[in-house]
Design a protein around this nucleic acid. Structure first.
Lengths: 349, 349
DNA sequence: CTGAAAGCGCTTACAG
DNA sequence: CTGAAAGCGCTTACAG
């Protein structure tokens, strides 16, 4: 069924059918009704591609998620607690605005070409990128595209320094530095002096911020930053688990508290400590980051920094859509607060 | 940049450019090289919509996830432990086959129209539906479409009875009846005689199967099915939590074991029991279903039935793609084994 | 208010 | 082996 068929059945021209479909004002109510009736009777839906080709957008946005885990890691699909809420809320928000979402996972640097490709092929009107590494070159290419791009978790400073603050880009962050600082301050206020960190990926904006805050809060309080207390987990549960096990096996003196750059790694630490016979928070305190689904499920419940994933993804979608529809046309950036949520995983010394 | 531009630069016609893009055999190596070079130099990507309009497929499949939770439930985005692994592996498999995936969440009956719409609008070549309720009418409509549809978790019997086993459909299940039976048998073998169930949604195929198995294994063993021991959780953590709390508060005699229709509800039971001062497995044993990410994270680790989500979603993608490309053309169905994974949440009586 | 016609960027018989 | 031309199903100036 094509618009032509509808036109015939309704006794009008394709032009008129098109006008009612697109809600043009210059068609009298009776004509509109007549056409609409035929359309409904036949469950007619205009061909997206033809519309797109003829100049209408595709009403589709791309969601590109940079995976922290390796594509070939067996358990990768279970490792990303950030993923599910993000995807779900992006999809819902987009759908409610009448947009479809095309989703892609990015594992390697080459995979970034996929987003370029999707834009060039006109599959999407615009895109959202989550968890980008600090690959400015890649970003430069993307920004060069005409399609609107919203970056979630990206260093605005870098963008501005590289003069990439083009009008088709937008950045959305959470205040990870502040949140992390609050977390470490909290541990210090409880009397902890030896505080370790289970680090995320420092070539991620949020990863870098969380670590920077950790370092500077320690220094500001006259505490030394011990190399041996900084474990590299790369945001991955498995890595964190091995690192913690390694520290425990080393026989080295342990910190009294750990700040983990995300909940997944905090959960891994829980496991490793328990297996080693240490209880939380009696023997060791832990703070996480994200406040994802697992945080409150852990026993004891995890004290963590809340990243407002829902708000951020909603904002991201609204932003791309606005950019696609040219409602806004300037470089913009928003940063959401990331407050500490105190639960049961830390004790006063 | 259009194919016409490439043609000019390469000194050939659009036809030839099209031939090399589509890998037609009848173009000599030198010509191919020449054209390819220009294409690469200019990062040319053919417009998807034009290709689609001209007869090529869109290389896009739809993934429609029926949400167990309410759209407006605050925590809905955190409630679906089935979701993340599913989406991630569908996306990866599709991408590796050169397909894009359009994703949609279905909350209401009307939302099913979205899949029809996506097909009618030719946005997708085919679709995958996960967690469909037993709405045969909806399915009937979908099956009437020409686009290939793969249903995950759907009653084959119903499809065959309604003569909906058309060549554009395919069904993929896990052997939930067997898995559930194994779980309940296991509890009985440990000496449990009073076994409760935290039920899923029985108007879901898997939900119904899990419950049927529970009932019949009890009966086969001469155990009575106690109404009071059957809690209705509807697959949702929150509901399960309230139901369990309700049972505990009632002062009624408790079963010695519970079989939960999914891990999320088992996790909710963990919480409720712990708050009530009951330890697992000392005071009460629990078996879950899914073996999703949380199963092994719970303390004690959850004994559960493993649903091979990864294999199922991979199979689903391969099937739609095969159907889209007309490699297969018959109604088909696969059912994956769902074995019991014994961990630490049950004790011998 | 409305229709005929051009155009969007491809693919694919058709003819040579 | 290759080009000219028709066609895919829309939208949108243009003219009336």
């Amino acid at each position: 069924m094509r618009s032509e068929d509808i036109a015939k059945l309704a006794g009008v021209s394709r032009s008129t059918v098109s006008r009612v479909i697109n809600n043009y004002p210059n068609v009298p109510p009776e004509t509109r009704e007549k056409v609409l009736k035929v359309i409904q009777q036949h469950h007619y839906q205009p061909n997206t591609y033809a519309r797109a080709l003829a100049g209408k957008g595709t009403n589709t946005i791309g969601l590109f998620v940079v995976s922290t885990a390796d594509k070939f890691s067996t358990h990768r699909i279970y490792q990303n607690n950030y993923f599910a809420p993000f995807v779900e809320s992006v999809v819902d928000t987009a759908n409610s605005l009448g947009y479809y979402v095309l989703i892609h996972t990015l594992y390697t640097l080459e995979d970034y070409q996929k987003v370029k490709q999707a834009c060039l092929q006109k599959r999407i009107d615009g895109g959202i990128l989550v968890g980008t590494r600090k690959e400015v070159d890649v970003i430069r290419e993307l920004v060069g595209l005409e399609a609107p791009i919203v970056l979630i978790d990206y260093d605005i400073g870098e963008i501005i320094a590289s003069r990439l603050d083009k009008s088709n880009v937008s950045v959305i962050n959470s205040k990870d530095y502040d949140g992390a600082a609050e977390a470490v301050d909290y541990l210090i206020s409880l009397g902890h002096r030896k505080i370790g960190m289970i680090n995320g990926s420092v070539n991620t904006f949020s990863g870098a911020e969380r670590f920077k805050a950790y370092e500077s809060v320690l220094q500001r309080n006259g505490l030394s930053v011990e190399k041996g207390y900084i474990l590299n987990g790369d945001f991955l549960k498995q890595n964190a688990y091995h690192e913690v096990r390694g520290l425990l096996a080393s026989g080295q003196e342990l910190p009294t508290a750990f700040f983990a750059a995300n909940d997944d790694m905090a959960a891994a630490a829980y496991e490793a400590f328990k297996e080693f016979g240490l209880s939380i928070p009696e023997d060791i305190s832990i703070v996480g980051f994200d406040d994802g689904p697992i945080a409150a499920q852990l026993v004891p419940k995890l004290t963590t920094v809340r990243v407002p994933i829902y708000d951020m993804s909603k904002e991201a979608v609204q932003k791309v859509v606005a950019l696609c529809e040219q409602t806004v046309t300037a470089f913009s950036t928003v940063s959401f607060p990331a407050p500490l949520v105190v639960r049961d995983s830390c004790r006063e010394l």
